[in-house]
């Protein structure tokens, strides 16, 4: 049944299995996000920060990286990226419930503050943009050791105003380091809209000042993000230096579970964005190409639901850390 002619993902070198894997990662991220949001509203999770609406862009980018070779220094919405880099639904839920086994920080930080040495994910922290120069340092370390790899770091458009972003870009530009700067432009920094954050038209333009390419991509076009990322990866691996990729995306949920977005944006705007959501459009694309059959889709959704249920049940009953554990890890023992 599948149309063999001019199928876009095959033309750019992605197999049917790969795009299905991408879609599944997006769906899993979405399902985990929605479950955590529900658990928060039910009073079970203290705080949630959401990836909803940005999964397509994240997954498009992350599938151009190699989880066994590259490093990621993600920001708090990058659930799609960390799933690709090997975090499991259980890991995510353990972090949501702030349990001892949470691989990010053992409950020491808020959920969304990812980090896992075994998964090549740098531990981040609450002050925005601090991860960006870290990624540059890690890229320099790789160069010094003659390791051929890419470091990825992400941030919101508001966070691209921090000195950390500019200083990191400058250094990476000077040194032509293998870094991918990924700006997830969702049009708001909490309540403050893009036009009140930056005077330029595109965040990608900022790259020019640092001497490397910047591109702006529709973040709901998963395959376009993948292609741009692959170009950036190849550039970095060839020693040509960094790339800034800006994706135009949208955060469907409020900033966090503590935010009320009705104060600063209309329901019509949010509803309109939901129509363009990559989960919807990429799903439609996969169905239209015959890659995602009704059977496959049902199986996928059933499987994801089960995985999320299992992860929730596991994390909910998992123990909290012992109080004395909070005192450790300040200095080397």
């Amino acid at each position: 049944m599948s149309k063999q002619t001019a199928v876009r993902h095959r033309e750019i070198g992605l197999s049917d299995e790969q795009v299905l894997d991408m879609y599944r990662t997006m769906i899993l991220a979405r399902a985990l996000d929605e479950r955590m949001w529900l658990l928060n509203r039910a009073g079970k999770l203290p705080f949630v920060v959401s990836c909803k609406g940005q999964e397509g862009a994240q997954v498009g980018l992350a599938f151009a990286l190699d989880p066994t070779r590259d490093y990621v220094a993600p920001y708090y919405r990058d659930l799609g990226v960390v799933l690709r880099f090997g975090q499991t639904a259980r890991d995510v839920m353990l972090s949501g419930f702030a349990k001892r086994e949470d691989p990010n920080s053992g409950g020491r930080q808020m959920p969304g503050h990812f980090g896992s040495r075994k998964n090549r994910i740098l531990t981040g922290s609450s002050p925005v943009s601090t991860q960006i120069p870290h990624a540059v340092g890690m890229a320099l370390a790789a160069r010094m050791r003659n390791e051929r790899l890419v470091t990825y770091t992400s941030f919101g458009e508001g966070s691209s105003n921090q000195g950390d972003f500019h200083e990191a870009c400058n250094f990476a530009g000077v040194q032509k380091l293998p870094v991918i700067f990924f700006c997830e432009n969702n049009l708001y920094a909490i309540s403050v809209p893009l036009a009140r954050q930056v005077g330029c038209e595109r965040i990608a333009q900022r790259a020019e000042g640092y001497g490397f390419p910047g591109v702006t991509i529709d973040g709901n076009d998963v395959l376009a993000v993948y292609e741009a990322a692959r170009t950036a990866v190849n550039r970095a691996l060839d020693g040509l230096g960094p790339t800034l990729i800006e994706v135009l995306t949208y955060r469907i949920n409020p900033h966090s579970s503590d935010d009320d977005d009705r104060v600063y944006r209309s329901r019509e705007e949010v509803d309109e964005a939901k129509q363009r959501d990559a989960i919807v459009t990429f799903g439609a694309y996969l169905r239209s190409t015959g890659v995602l059959t009704a059977d496959k889709e049902q199986a996928l959704l059933r499987d994801v639901e089960q995985v999320v249920d299992e992860a929730t049940a596991y994390a909910e009953q998992a123990p909290y850390a012992e109080p004395q554990e909070a005192l450790g890890h300040v200095y080397a023992q």
Binding site: G107, R108, Y320, A321, P323, A326, L327, G328, V330
Partner: peptide, 10 residues
């Protein structure tokens, strides 16, 4: 104590 601010549970 002279340690980093701990997790919420404690």
């Amino acid at each position: 104590p002279d340690t980093v601010y701990p997790f919420g549970m404690i």
